[in-house]
């Protein structure tokens, strides 16, 4: 019977479809729960920075707050402005949310724990993260409102600019690893924590993290969101769950970029010390801890830094990060080539 079942799930196309669906659910459901709790953690961290308590009323320690907020968003009325392009207006938040989710297909959670172990994993991540722009730009245009449109242009320009430097960061990582497969990237960093790539590539790690902040429209680059002075940018016209999807997509993107940082620079599922008590902890826990650390830094920056002015933001992206990362690519290639450290392929 069990042999039959194994055969059904490995050879029959229906069985394979069921397996794939189950894998997708196994990734998506924990991801959505962590998105919900990320909003809670975010608010708690800001509260501590500002010497407040943060959400503490709904449930013990305010733990049910994310669900209360979610429920509120679901129950509110979705308003579609009469002059808006209704179809695109509704599709835009879905695109934002979906692109944040589909990228997880190639993220390795542990040795072999990955839905699609494709050879071009890094490129896939880069491709998908560059699609996030469309949700924003379509939202801005479909709203048929000048605030939303200007906000959309602003944030699209910002995301496109910082993608360039992220691209160069990815290139240095793949130069050091010699593979585009994310599992190979992690395996190349095995051993003690000083084998992780963040140490030899420290400037690139910093550039990656700052670009990740800009990619996800977080402080100090949250011009798209700046509620107070720029009327909330591209989602001015959005309400209820259409806004909720943008919000969830933003948080899912933050978690995704943290996961990318963990895989590329912090050794993915590897434990920092490859010895007995540490190796008993499953890899997925280490991976989650690394993501959680990066997410904490996300909240921390939001709690402490003021907002950039738009021209300063563009200057940082094009005049500082682009030349530095380009130079670092050349430097890394030269060091690997002449130092004899080129990874075997």
């Amino acid at each position: 019977m069990s042999a039959d079942l194994i055969q059904f799930f490995t050879t029959n196309w229906l069985g394979q479809a069921i397996v794939i669906l189950a894998q997708c659910l196994a990734v998506t459901v924990p991801l959505l729960v962590s998105v919900a709790y990320m909003t809670y953690v975010d608010r708690k961290v800001w509260a501590s920075i500002q010497l407040r308590r943060g959400p503490n009323v709904v449930g013990p320690f305010g733990l049910l707050q994310p669900f209360a907020d979610g429920l509120k968003l679901v129950l509110k009325e979705t308003i579609i402005p009469s002059s808006a392009n209704a179809v695109l207006f509704v599709i835009a938040p879905m695109i934002t949310f979906m692109t944040a989710l589909v990228a997880w297909a190639v993220v390795p959670f542990d040795d072999g724990w990955v839905i699609a172990d494709i050879n071009v994993g890094i490129l896939y991540l880069f491709a998908i993260s560059s699609l996030g722009v469309y949700g924003i730009i379509i939202a801005g245009w479909a709203s048929n409102s000048k605030y939303a449109f200007l906000g959309a242009l602003r944030s699209a320009a910002q995301m496109v600019s910082y993608e360039v430097s992220i691209g160069f960061v990815l290139i240095t990582v793949l130069l050091c690893v010699g593979s585009l497969n994310l599992s190979d990237v992690v395996i190349a960093q095995s051993g003690w924590f000083w084998n992780w790539l963040f140490l030899p590539l420290l400037p690139m790690f910093v550039i990656f993290f700052v670009s990740a902040l800009a990619e996800t429209n977080r402080t100090p680059f949250d011009l798209p969101m700046s509620e107070a002075e720029l009327v909330a940018g591209f989602h001015t016209e959005y309400s209820a769950m259409t806004f909720g999807l943008f919000f969830l997509g933003e948080y899912a993107n933050m978690i995704l970029l943290s996961a990318m940082g963990a895989v590329l620079f912090l050794g993915g599922w590897m434990s920092p010390i490859p010895h007995a008590p540490f190796t008993y902890v499953p890899g997925v826990v280490w991976f989650a801890l690394k993501i959680a650390f990066l997410l904490f830094v996300f909240s921390w920056t939001k709690g402490t830094l003021p907002r950039y002015r738009y021209d300063q933001l563009m200057r940082l992206g094009w005049k500082v990060f682009l030349p530095v990362s380009l130079g670092w690519v050349v430097l890394t290639a030269a060091v690997l080539q002449f130092g004899g450290w080129v990874p075997k392929s």
Binding site: L131, F149, A156
Partner: peptide
């Protein structure tokens, strides 16, 4: 041809079409 597929998405969808959209929307 996975490499070409990804490059197509990155270059054309991620960059070129965004700029098209920019111009056309304005």
């Amino acid at each position: 041809a996975e490499f070409i597929a990804m490059i197509l998405v990155i270059v054309y969808v991620g960059a070129v079409a965004v700029l098209f959209l920019f111009v056309v929307m304005m």
